[in-house]
Every structure is written in C-alpha cells, then in structure tokens.
C-alpha cells in the first residue's frame, strides 16, 4: 500500500517546527524585533497561493469572484513582503559595533 502524500507533508511540517525551534532559540534577544518583522515578511510567501488564485480566471474574464479574492490577497501579501523585508533591512543597518578609535 502506498503512503499518502499528506504524510510526507506532515513530516516536513513537524521537522520544520523543530528546525524553527532550535534556530529561533539561537537568535540573540537584541534582534527579536527584526526577527518578528522578518518572520512577517517570509510568512507572506502565502502570495504563492494568492497568485494561483488570481490566475484562476479564464481568458474571457480575468476577474471572477474567486480571482478577485486572489488579487486582493496578492496586494496584501505584497505590502507585507516589501514592507517586512525593507523595514528589517533598515533596522539591521542600525546595529553597529563600538568604534575602536576615539
């Protein structure tokens, strides 16, 4: 009997939780705010689903109820992706070490 592909996805999911657990514990507390903004940005990879939804209309009508929700989700996720990565970059650029001279 073949194994349901769901089991494979579940394995990836469970193992990723453990990876996340160990990786996040190693994040230095002073970077917890950038951690939140970057996790925000990467969880917007949900845009992948939104794109599929947006492209679900046929060639006659790009917009139907289902694809409109897709397009809205694309815009929301895009705000997060650009906003999240850029604000993280802006924050991280501010973390500087003590200057040795002077």
């Amino acid at each position: 009997m073949e194994i349901d592909p769901l089991i494979f996805r579940l394995s990836i999911f469970i193992l990723s939780i453990f990876v996340g657990y160990y990786v996040v514990w190693s994040v230095t507390p002073s970077l917890h705010t950038p951690l939140m903004s970057v996790t925000n940005a990467i969880s917007s990879v949900i845009i992948v689903g939104a794109i599929i939804a947006g492209l679900s209309g046929n060639s006659d009508s790009v917009f139907n109820t289902s694809s409109i929700f897709g397009f809205l989700a694309i815009a929301l996720a895009a705000i997060n992706i650009f906003g999240g990565f850029l604000v993280t970059q802006r924050m991280l650029a501010m973390y500087k070490k003590k200057k040795k001279d002077k």
Binding site: I14, V24, V45
Partner: peptide, 13 residues
C-alpha cells in the same frame, strides 16, 4: 512545501 516550512518556522518562532 515553501508555505508549510515557512508556516512551521514562523509558528514556532
């Protein structure tokens, strides 16, 4: 997979 991995990472974070 990308969404599952990311979701698990963000969830545990």
């Amino acid at each position: 997979t990308a969404l599952i991995i990311t979701g698990a990472l963000v969830g545990s974070s």
